[in-house]
Design a protein around this nucleic acid. Structure first.
Length: 267
DNA sequence: AATAAGAACAACCGCCGTATG
DNA sequence: CCATACGGCGGTTGTTCTTAT
């Protein structure tokens, strides 16, 4: 009869789940495409893999997201965008699919409501119409090219609307890393790594490192390419690092009395 | 109680990068 | 070097559940 085996689609039955689970517990998953054949399932390998990863795999949390988890997702999403698998890496027991679903069904609305509220504040400031010097010229963005003096502001506006919030380490080449100021660059990178490694350090230590950096003829402004920081470090930061993600696409960091920008992230 | 609308969840699809022959 | 298979990822769709009317 039909020479091509039709793969079953749709929801998984408890029986199918049991077959898949038993097989993987016994033999491991190895090659996904061979699993349905060996386990006696009418599914394709991809479907088996997805079912295992998102539902059957041990260690999954399931159930409602906690407030802490939601906050973490929001913070990570601001940094990573829709990199669900990377976000999931920072939430043990949660799958990328689960996080993605929760984002689309709940968090996204929460964020856009917040943004609306914020933009409402910006567009309709309290009746006392005192124009702030920082007030960006939105009409000029819409209709005309920005004048050269407004370039920075305009770039920020464009970035805010269109560009990712952060430049990632993976986009940077080794060449850039060893760039023209090779010596100082790599030593700075080392210092930065040290400075940010406050998993075990307290903020005092951090500011001590900051002082150390400060003393390295770097002045009170450091902008060396590329600097790296891990996302977990960012989220752990006693300085509220996630609030320092700049609209220019770089990460600005202000621990104490010095500041620099960070161009890369450890993922 | 019936049902329409919206929310939440599960799974599929297509694309891309990598490994292998 | 090329073709193919596979795994992984993100977007999207389909299904089920819950709530409002």
């Amino acid at each position: 009869m039909g020479c091509k085996q039709k793969h079953k689609k749709g929801l998984w039955s408890p029986d199918e789940d049991l077959k898949l689970k038993n097989y993987i517990f016994k033999y491991g998953h190895g090659c996904w495409s061979s699993i349905p054949i060996n386990a006696g399932l009418q599914r394709n390998g991809k479907s088996c893999r997805l079912r295992w990863i998102n539902y059957l795999r041990p260690g999954l949390k399931r159930g409602a997201f906690s407030f802490e988890e939601e906050e973490k997702i929001l913070a990570l999403h601001r940094v990573l965008g829709n990199k669900w698998s990377q976000i999931a890496n920072h939430l043990p027991g949660r799958t990328d699919n689960e996080i993605k679903n929760h984002w689309h069904s709940y968090l996204k609305k929460r964020v856009s409501k917040l943004a609306e509220a914020k933009s409402g504040e910006l567009e309709a400031p309290p009746s006392s119409s005192k124009s702030t010097p920082q007030d960006p010229s939105f009409e000029s963005l819409e209709n005309t090219e920005a004048s050269s003096t407004d370039t920075d502001q305009s770039m920020q506006q464009i970035d805010q609307q269109q560009l990712p919030k952060v430049l990632f380490a993976e986009w940077l080449s080794l060449e850039q890393f060893n760039g023209p100021n090779q010596g100082s660059s790599s030593s700075t990178a080392q210092h930065l790594k040290y400075t940010f490694d406050y998993g075990s350090a307290n903020s005092e230590d951090s500011s001590a490192h900051a002082q150390q950096l400060n003393g390295e003829a770097l002045g009170n402004e450091i902008h060396t390419k590329p600097n790296f920081i891990s996302i977990d470090d960012m989220l752990r930061s006693p300085f509220g690092f996630e609030d320092q993600i700049s609209e220019s696409g770089l990460v600005d960091y202000f621990p104490g009395d010095f500041n620099f920008s960070c161009d890369g992230l450890y993922l």
